[in-house]
């Protein structure tokens, strides 16, 4: 299990390849990458992510550990950035390795649902002349009830 919280960009391809390397007993590798999406108006200048150092790493490790107890997984990777990034840049990724794909897919979805509303990150959108904190969505909270 590897949990990384960093401000630097990461190379999704290299991370996915390293995660998948030499796993003779894992039949399924699932990866997900979250990318900064421009606004519909195309005026998003930057996304700024604040986090709670210390609690962030502990919360991500706790979520990943929960996933490992619920599904048959060989390994879990979570990378999440903080700081300022621009549209098109990767924000975060998760990867799961499992003997079978159902476990890998479900665990990846579980990780995504939980880290959206249980890991201490806050997004702020910068547009020309204004900056707004992104409000949490009810559906993100509702998504947890299915687990």
């Amino acid at each position: 299990m590897r949990i990384v919280v960093q401000d630097a960009p990461f190379d999704f391809g290299a991370e996915a390849a390293a995660f998948a390397a030499d796993r003779r007993d894992m039949g399924a590798i699932v990866t997900f990458t979250g990318v900064v999406r421009d606004s519909d108006a195309g005026d998003l200048q930057a996304m700024e992510i604040e986090h709670y150092p210390g609690m962030t790493e502990a919360a991500l490790a706790d979520i990943a550990t929960q996933a490992r107890t619920r599904w048959s997984l060989g390994d879990v990777l979570v990378i999440h950035r903080f700081g300022r990034m621009t549209p098109g840049e990767p924000i975060m990724m998760v990867a799961t390795a499992a003997p079978h794909r159902k476990d890998a897919f479900e665990a990846a979805e579980f990780l995504m649902d939980y880290l959206k509303s249980r890991a201490p990150f806050w997004k702020k959108e910068h547009r020309a002349g204004q900056a707004d904190w992104v409000a949490a969505k009810d559906e993100d909270e509702d998504a947890l009830t299915r687990w």
Partner: peptide, 10 residues
């Protein structure tokens, strides 16, 4: 003790 709005990770 820390206070903050609902989290928006991912």
């Amino acid at each position: 003790v820390a206070f903050f709005p609902p989290m928006t990770g991912g």
